[in-house]
Simulated scan of single mutants.
Amino acid sequence: MNTQTTQSPQFYLTAPAQCPYLEKERERKVFTHLVGPRAAEMNDLLTQGGFRRSQNIAYRPACENCRACVSVRIIASAFTPHRSMKRTIARNADLAGTELPARASLEQYDLFRTYLDSRHQQGGMADMSIGDYSVMVEETHVETRVIEYRVRSGALEDPGELVAVALTDVMIDGLSMVYSFFNPAYEKRSLGSFMILDHIRRAEEAGLPYVYLGYWVKGSRKMDYKKRFLPQEHLTGHGWERADPDADLED
């Protein structure tokens, strides 16, 4: 008998560590391994339950004194971009997004390093080598895609400049944006927002109801951009609930 198909996942707790989003808080996570023939099914269920995937690990916050992290998903079928989002889409009309298998490339890594060196010099990924990056992209037992965004060159032999990349899981009810990065030199393009808008379009065209954005962290200004994509649902103690755009969720 294949025990992987019958055993329930085992969950573990990390040791407390400094929270990367809230200076005065200590973070702790609960995690499990995503392996075996049920990995995709478990990833769907766990993501719907507030977990995130990193390589073959699914995790969620399990902090003792803080509940600031809130899982967010956009309702793709009901989404309508507001004026500034339409401008973002227009500014990036010259980009082509190509969906590829989860394979790392040196070109992706060079862009990844440029992004980290500009935006996250002190983050946990700051020292990642190309080998580490390859593992982040390729070590997956679920349906994962790399979406490359390039400036259209107009020449068949020239694929165009790579300006942004998204690592995305395809789930039964939506797209989960695992990680994305872009060339910070193109600040006026708002590439981070554009990739979210493009994923909303892709989800709607595929008949998938949601785009999962990971965690909005109450009190962290760097995470406030996630609240702009409405309508959206937040995972609460009562399940997924439509978020009020004019009020924060209670702790």
Results as ranks from 00 to 15, higher is better:
N56D: 13
N56T: 15
N56C: 14
N56L: 13
I57Y: 14
I57A: 08
I57L: 14
I57T: 15
I57K: 14
I57G: 08
I57W: 12
A58P: 03
A58Q: 01
Y59K: 12
Y59Q: 04
Y59C: 04
Y59M: 08
Y59N: 05
Y59S: 05
Y59A: 09
R60V: 09
R60Y: 05
R60K: 12
P61G: 08
P61I: 05
P61V: 06
P61R: 03
P61F: 00
A62E: 07
A62G: 05
A62M: 11
A62Q: 10
A62L: 06
C63I: 11
C63V: 10
C63F: 09
C63S: 08
E64T: 15
E64D: 15
E64W: 12
E64F: 13
C66P: 03
C66D: 03
C66R: 10
C66Y: 10
C66M: 05
R67A: 11
R67L: 09
R67G: 11
R67S: 12
R67P: 07
A68Q: 04
A68K: 09
A68T: 11
A68W: 08
C69A: 12
C69G: 07
C69I: 10
C69S: 11
C69D: 01
C69F: 04
C69H: 05
V70R: 12
V70S: 08
V70E: 03
V70H: 12
S71N: 06
S71F: 07
V72Y: 05
V72M: 06
R73T: 10
R73W: 03
R73F: 05
R73C: 06
R73P: 00
R73V: 10
R73I: 09
I74K: 08
I74T: 11
I75V: 12
A76T: 10
A76E: 02
A76W: 02
A76C: 03
A76I: 11
S77Y: 00
S77I: 06
S77R: 10
A78P: 02
F79E: 02
F79G: 04
F79R: 02
F79V: 08
F79C: 00
F79I: 02
F79W: 00
F79N: 03
T80E: 11
T80M: 11
T80V: 14
T80A: 13
T80I: 12
T80F: 06
P81A: 09
H82A: 13
H82R: 14
H82D: 15
H82I: 15
H82T: 15
R83A: 14
R83I: 13
R83D: 04
R83N: 12
R83E: 05
R83S: 14
S84Y: 07
M85F: 09
M85A: 12
K86G: 03
K86A: 05
K86Y: 04
R87M: 06
R87H: 10
R87E: 04
R87G: 04
T88Y: 09
T88G: 04
T88V: 15
T88W: 05
I89C: 04
I89R: 13
I89V: 14
I89D: 01
A90N: 13
A90Y: 14
A90I: 13
A90P: 01
A90H: 14
R91S: 02
R91Q: 03
R91C: 02
R91H: 05
R91G: 00
R91Y: 02
